[in-house]
Design a protein around this nucleic acid. Sequence first.
DNA 1: TGATTGTGTAACCATTTGGTTTCATGTTAG
DNA 2: CTAACATGAAACCAAATGGTTACACAATCA
Lengths: 113, 113
Amino acid sequence: MVTQSEISEQQRVDRVFRALADATRRDIVRRTLHAEASISELAADYDMSFAAVRKHVGVLEAADLVARTPRGRERIVRGNPETIRRAMELLGHFEQIWRGRVDRLDALFAEDS
Amino acid sequence: MVTQSEISEQQRVDRVFRALADATRRDIVRRTLHAEASISELAADYDMSFAAVRKHVGVLEAADLVARTPRGRERIVRGNPETIRRAMELLGHFEQIWRGRVDRLDALFAEDS
DNA sequence: TGATTGTGTAACCATTTGGTTTCATGTTAG
DNA sequence: CTAACATGAAACCAAATGGTTACACAATCA
């Protein structure tokens, strides 16, 4: 049996935004979208331990913002543009809601005149 | 002297994504983009205390995702589409970085052939 | 083989977060 | 004026977060 630990869409969205709410993690996403890198290569450029960077990569992976694939003794990290795109779409829906309100206000003014 | 408690752009971005990483807060943003509401009106629809909802509104306000203006004894909350738009742009930059990599790979294949 | 490198993970710690209850204060309704 | 309502804020608490050090293990190099 494949136990698909049931996780809601809400929680998945929570994880994406939570993962993006840290400058180091945003930088890792940026870098690994630009070019893949091993965790050690990533860690070399931050003022914190390897273990800390490893945890950040774990948070990003749980949010599906990066993928981690083995290559020899290394783990290659790649950014996932699809998850970024989904987050953008979500924010786009918020903007649409706002535009909807503006349209309704416009309609009210139109009735007035 | 106007003490502008110095806050970095990074921290401002942190706050926006952090604020969006909670389903209740996303719902408050959605609702107040659609139509303004008092904190009490908002709180009536969530299964938590007024104080908890008040805190969520505080987090959203600190991220500039909503604004709070007094009206009589109420505080009217309105969603701020501009901050949403800025967050979208940020994610858009990430996508551009990825597209840049694809373009470079395309160039490599072109050289190959 | 042995040393080095890259990774995974556990145990620990301080701080932040997200909730609670309680109480004070300002504002409006009767 | 008094009661009810809306808000603000403090004190408290459990859990999550973001870092550390230490150690085990796998893979590669010489």
